[in-house]
């Protein structure tokens, strides 16, 4: 058992609290700036929407055609197959050449990349600054002693930046305190921001698991192929009406 270190009580007021305080403030600031910088959700262009919407209608028909009678089923099946084979609902004319479009000239892709870059910047700049600040002023500080015992495996987590292999694990270094704050401030943000979705976004940014934006890569199926495939699916749909024998079912159940 190593003897106790004597920690200057002033460390608490001039190192421990300021680091926590700055971390909280920067977190809130960042949440607000991120919100300002991210534009609102974009609407899908109505032609594209129409294309999808019709496909949705066909899908619903394929899944739930049991609510139709035989005659209605036939009528709709014919209509859908005929319509799927025309270009009535295509959002844009289909070009004949098979060359896939360059995804980087697509404005929606650019938007997604821009958003990702903004998010990354908002993440890295403040983190670099705070870490630089701590390393500059408080490098190698041991700033507090935890009031409870811990096993030795916590050493790496709590004593980052102090090169003392035999120091009791209960002592925490300044840079480790920074990391603990970085990952553990969620309850404080939840109280201060009162908006759980913003907190989620903030914590997700901090844990550095960035979502990869969906970039419409080449080779996405063209709409005419999708429609043709759907029409072929419809040819083989099996129909069984719920109205067959419904009288007997009800009479039996009651």
């Amino acid at each position: 058992m190593s003897p106790d270190l004597l920690l200057d009580p002033q460390l608490k007021y001039w190192v421990l609290l300021p680091i926590s305080f700055v971390m909280v403030l920067v977190g809130i600031l960042r949440a607000n700036v991120t919100q300002l910088m991210s534009g609102g959700p974009k609407l899908t262009p109505f032609k594209k929407f129409r294309e999808q919407s019709f496909l949705g209608r066909v899908g619903a028909f394929r899944a739930n055609n049991s609510v139709l009678t035989e005659q209605e089923f036939q009528q709709r099946q014919e209509y859908f197959i005929a319509t799927l084979n025309t270009d009535h609902f295509y959002s844009e004319p289909i070009s004949e050449d098979d060359k896939p479009a360059n995804p980087f000239t697509d404005p929606s892709t650019n938007d997604a990349m821009m958003n990702m870059m903004k998010g990354n910047l908002m993440n890295y700049i403040p983190q670099t600054l705070i870490m630089g600040w701590i390393n500059y002023f408080f490098a190698g500080f041991v700033i507090m002693k935890l009031p409870f015992p811990l096993t030795d495996s916590f050493k790496q987590m709590l004593q980052n930046g102090v090169a003392t292999p035999d120091l009791n694990v209960r002592y925490v270094s300044s840079i480790s305190w920074y990391f603990v704050n970085l990952l553990g401030l969620r309850p404080i943000y939840t109280i201060l921001l009162q908006d759980s979705s913003a907190v989620d976004a903030l914590m997700q940014q901090q844990s550095q698991t960035q979502q990869v934006p969906t970039i419409g890569g080449p080779g996405g199926p063209k709409v005419d192929k999708v429609y043709k495939a759907e029409a072929e699916n419809l040819q083989v749909v099996d129909h069984k009406s719920i109205f067959d024998g419904i009288v007997e079912r009800v009479l039996e159940a009651n």
């Binding site: 109505f46 929407f49 129409r50 919407s53 019709f54 949705g56 209608r57 619903a60 609902f89």
Partner: peptide, 12 residues
């Protein structure tokens, strides 16, 4: 008008 609109948004 409704028919026109439903042509635009067939799943409304």
């Amino acid at each position: 008008n409704l028919i026109f609109y439903l042509d635009l948004n067939p799943s409304d």
